[in-house]
Amino acid sequence: MTQAASIASFDTGYSADSTEFCPFKDHTQYLAVGTYQLTDEQEANVRIRKGKTYLFDVTQPLIPQQTIETPAVLDMKWSHALVNDKQVLGIADAQGGVHLYGFNENTLEKVDHVQATDDPSTLCLSLDWASRLNKTDGRIVTSHSNGTVNILTPTESGYVVGEDWHAHDLEAWIAAFDYWNTNVVYSGADDGLFKGWDVRDPSTPTFVYKRHMMGVTTMQSNPNKEHVLATGSYDETIYIWDTRSMRAPVQTCQTPGGGIWRLKWHPTNENRLLSASMHAGAFVVDLKQDEEPMVSTSFLDHTSMAYGADWSFADTSLVASCSFYDHCMHLWKAAD
């Protein structure tokens, strides 16, 4: 296993919890970093959580090109298809809202906002776009601290809340589309349950599993190989599933401690996975058929919980990861 060294770092001030590289060819040098700060201020008996989203050009010295102030950021994802002719970043916030920012040349401007829940004390914990492979499907799935999951649907006048259902009895940490069949959504929560849903009728889950021993925090459909899904948990375990037969995972990888907060498939390599592993750091896992999964690269420079990590779409060995209480973002390279 190779231990990567930091190429560059930036102190984000507020606690950093999300890093996302832009996937569009003319903007792949841009990296968004989201932050979260719980303040002592109150509004309607709810403590205010502030956030900043930084936009970096990673080909330049690590100085933000832009800083956007929002409520605290819990998750961010770029759409892989244009939204009204713009390259758009979706931001899930601590007031149950989703903000959409689109590129206007080399800066981001707000293009939409939708309140995914009416209760300002409910956090929007995650979001995912249906458009990773299906460029004609502009829907967004969000999950919330009250256990609900909903689908945000584009209309001529902007995004609106479409399907909305109570998916879990505890915090729904994650929801994600099956990129190969965007009528299918997966969710995971603090109850340790991993569920599947057909969004055309989400009244009953298509499956419910409790394979993970602790809360399910992350999942992602493999954009390079159909029927492959990765899930991760506070229990430090990554499971790889064949979505055609979900009774048991087809591969298991125990990460080097820390719990797992985010998993990201490599942009082009169907067998490579990035893990933001909270207390332990960030890791690159190589998965090969008929072989044990192997951690090929570790990044251990974070001195606090590594919550965010993402691959560059330009230099696909480049990784950005960020950590919470030490409010730091690092760039580093995965081993070949």
Rank of each mutant, 00 (worst) to 15 (best):
D93G: 01
T122W: 03
L133N: 15
I68G: 15
T117Y: 05
D137G: 04
V73G: 09
H113W: 10
T155E: 14
N134M: 05
A172L: 05
G147A: 00
A130K: 09
R132E: 14
Q115T: 02
T142I: 08
V141I: 14
S143G: 03
D93V: 01
E69Q: 15
N134D: 06
G138S: 05
W173M: 03
N84M: 11
W180G: 15
G147Y: 01
H80I: 02
G158M: 07
I68V: 15
D169K: 14
H168W: 09
P154I: 07
N106K: 13
S131P: 00
S157F: 00
K135N: 07
A72L: 05
E109G: 08
D93F: 00
V160T: 08
I140F: 08
A94F: 01
K110N: 05
D128W: 06
G97K: 07
A94H: 00
L82I: 04
G162D: 07
V184Q: 11
Y179K: 04
Q87E: 13
G158K: 12
G90H: 13
G96W: 00
D85N: 14
P120R: 14
T122V: 11
L127K: 12
D118H: 14
K110V: 07
A167Q: 02
A94E: 00
P120Q: 14
H80V: 06
G96R: 11
T142M: 06
K77M: 15
I68Q: 15
V83A: 08
L89I: 10
G138R: 01
V149S: 05
S131F: 02
D75F: 11
A81K: 08
D112C: 03
I91E: 05
A175E: 02
K86Y: 07
E105H: 00
W78I: 10
T142W: 06
E109Q: 06
T155M: 09
S143F: 02
I174L: 05
E171C: 12
H99N: 13
S126A: 14
N104P: 00
